[in-house]
């Protein structure tokens, strides 16, 4: 479980995964008067976890539906695994697995029957479908519930069964539309593990999310979508570097009556736009050089006898990136602001 927390990159697998990639050119889709996609251009390399990050209604699900052959774009072309999503829909379906926004499992069938059915519809054959179902039930911790109807499953179990269904044919390209929406934190961590595992097995994962933290932790490459268009793309670090604003150093004094003294002492090393909060005894200022500034702060305050209660560097988060690019915040709902602090390593 520890490994789920750290950020790992699987970019070393790029060369060994030939066919699993996605090319999108000028894809537009309108529903009545609503312009869901306004000319999307995108390329995703094979063997990585790619995150499409955007708020509700930004066009994420529509793009996933176009790429999984469920929706025909009005204009533009899209290729998945080298196949055209319109002209070669059947071939595309052979190389993808899809877990949509809501678990799509047949409630009247047992977990095992659900997976066997999917396996047979991928034409694995009866025997292999059975074996594969057993294997997935086992690895998704559903063996005990395998012969119970999906109707009786909890939300987390359904989500796992749904994901297992998407993996039945071991597809080289996995689409996950908001896979962790509505999951409790523990299930979310579990799911992150599974997604990372997929990338290690050389499969591409295309996931959408409105959680900045999720994109930050999982994705090798991120594209930000807003109002139906991709407005920025890059690695998490690139995005923070380009548009996230600067790293700040932040400190809290042990004794807030020493505020003025500290302020004067820092004048030598800090730029003019120092920020202070006298009531809390807090001072912060931009520190583009990163950690180097920490020792300078300690030395200059030490010299004048000011004691520190807290000293930290605050790196820009994807939150800042999103806000900077779009002018509004990405997330909604109360449970979305889960500890961004730990996500910036």
């Amino acid at each position: 479980m520890d490994e789920a927390i750290g950020v790992t990159t699987q970019s070393d697998s790029e060369n060994t995964c030939p066919n699993a990639f996605i090319e999108v050119a000028n894809v537009a889709k309108t529903f009545g008067k609503v312009r869901a996609l306004a000319g999307v251009n995108l390329e995703v390399e094979p063997g990585i976890v790619f995150a499409l990050l955007g708020p509700n209604g930004s066009g994420k699900t529509t793009l996933v539906k176009v790429l999984t052959t469920l929706l025909r774009p009005d204009t533009g072309t899209a290729k998945v695994g080298g196949f055209d999503v319109i002209g070669q829909a059947r071939e595309v379906r052979n190389v993808i697995g899809l877990a949509g926004q809501y678990p799509a499992v047949d409630e009247n069938l047992t977990g095992r029957e659900n997976l066997e059915m999917i396996g047979r519809l991928y034409h694995l054959g009866r025997g292999r479908a059975r074996d594969r179902a057993a294997e997935l039930l086992d690895s998704f911790d559903l063996s005990d519930a395998a012969n119970r109807r999906a109707r009786t499953y909890s939300g987390g179990m359904r989500r796992r069964l749904d994901l297992a269904a998407a993996l039945v044919a071991s597809p080289p390209i996995l689409f996950l539309d908001e896979p962790t929406t509505g999951l409790d934190p523990r299930s979310r961590l579990n799911l992150w593990e599974i997604i990372k595992d997929q990338a290690k097995q050389c499969n591409s994962v295309f996931l959408t999310t409105q959680y900045l933290e999720e994109a930050d932790r999982l994705a090798d490459y991120i594209a930000i979508i807003d109002n139906g268009a991709i407005i920025q793309k890059g690695t998490s670090q690139e995005l923070k570097d380009c548009c996230g604003g600067e790293t700040h150093v932040k400190m809290r004094l042990a004794d807030r009556t020493q505020m003025q003294k500290a302020f004067e002492a820092l004048g030598a090393i800090a730029p003019e736009n120092m920020y202070q909060n006298p009531e809390m005894g807090e001072i912060s200022f931009p520190a583009p050089d990163g950690t180097a500034v920490l020792s300078a702060v300690v030395r200059s305050l030490d010299a004048v006898g000011v004691e520190l209660a807290e000293l930290s560097l605050k790196e820009p988060t994807l939150d800042d990136v999103f806000l900077a690019i779009t002018g509004h915040v990405a997330e909604e709902g109360p449970d979305t602001k889960t500890d961004m602090k730990s996500g910036s390593g």
């Binding site: 993808i96 899809l98 949509g100 926004q101 799509a104 991928y122």
Partner: peptide, 13 residues
């Protein structure tokens, strides 16, 4: 209405 149809339509059947 349950979205199960999306799963079926994404399969090569």
């Amino acid at each position: 209405s349950k979205g199960l149809i999306d799963r079926f339509r994404s399969l090569p059947m």
